[in-house]
């Protein structure tokens, strides 16, 4: 399974294009974050993440 990440919102997905940002995704990502509860997560707040899910920390 090839996972990719959106270069803007950093969400991890299999699609070639992010449905939210409408831009191409990248295979070149590193660092991994699962946000379970964005409303109560300091990490999610720091990264401006408002939706639960899987995110890359760095996307090129």
């Amino acid at each position: 399974m090839v996972t990719k990440a959106c270069t803007k919102c950093h969400r991890i997905m299999e699609e070639d294009r992010c449905a939210v940002c409408n831009i191409p995704t990248s295979k070149n990502w590193s660092g991994f974050l699962i946000v379970v509860d964005p409303e109560n997560s300091n990490i999610a707040k720091d990264l401006h993440i408002t939706l639960p899910g899987e995110y890359a920390l760095r996307v090129r």
Binding site: G31, V35, V36, D37, A44
Partner: peptide, 16 residues
């Protein structure tokens, strides 16, 4: 697991 059990885990970080 934490989602189904309701444990108060907010996020899980895996730095490269």
């Amino acid at each position: 697991n934490v989602k189904t059990s309701g444990i108060e885990v907010r996020s899980i970080l895996v730095p490269e």
